[in-house]
Amino acid sequence: MSAPLLQVDGLRVSVAGTPVLHGVSLTVRAGEVHAIMGPNGSGKSTLAHVLAGRSGYAVTAGSVRFDGVDLLAMAPEERARAGLFLGFQYPVEIPGVNNAYLLKAALNARRRARGESEIDAFDFLNMVRAKMRVMQIDEALLTRGVNEGFSGGEKKRNEILQMLVLEPRLALLDETDSGLDIDALKVVGRGINTLRSPERAVVLVTHYQRLLDHVVPDQVHVLARGRIIKSGDRELALELERRGYDWLLEAAAAVA
């Protein structure tokens, strides 16, 4: 068995003094796809943002190692350059900063961190165009401001496009499926599957199992009230779809 790509141990996190995560442990190895499911307010997005390095979250206990390195000691941009990608639940609009520029700047930052030279402009455009076709994104959006005036579906597809361009070692996708229609969900699923490889891992944060019809996970975890209360395989997601979360919450409460 390979060494963990992401190792989360006993992670406790507070936001503005309120504990949100109460000791989360998670091991993700290269080549795996994990799904983290759970009801609203369970701490899923908090976990994603803590891993990506957003400020405003206080880690009160526990550790996170990414490829053997202390992830919590790294700045957000260092995490990204080390190969961690966060797909945002609510991608922001940045008028005036065009998509092509951001993609190129982000890619070159990652390449420099790996000791590689900056990408040639021609090669960059060819590569991005190919990936845009996979994501069925109009090339005209390249010259628009980042997510400026994009529909909800276009924003989510743009997040996956960024992921495909940056080729992260670990992609954390925070409710990438929310707000997508069936066709867009297929496109996003195809994009995520494109990234799957023995060297990479994906963590999907989602409410529903419908994305998992397109991206089949190796493991499914249920995060509730700041703890992972159950883990299993894809069958667990299907069972959650049938039965909801209450039975698990009651069982967890009984154990506690």
């Binding site: 957003r54 941009e77 990204a80 990608f85 945002f88 991608p91 951001l102 700047a105």
Partner: peptide, 13 residues
């Protein structure tokens, strides 16, 4: 929020 988004893509502050 905008700053964080760009940092999360690996850009220098």
């Amino acid at each position: 929020d905008l700053l964080y988004y760009l940092l999360a893509r690996g850009l220098e502050p």
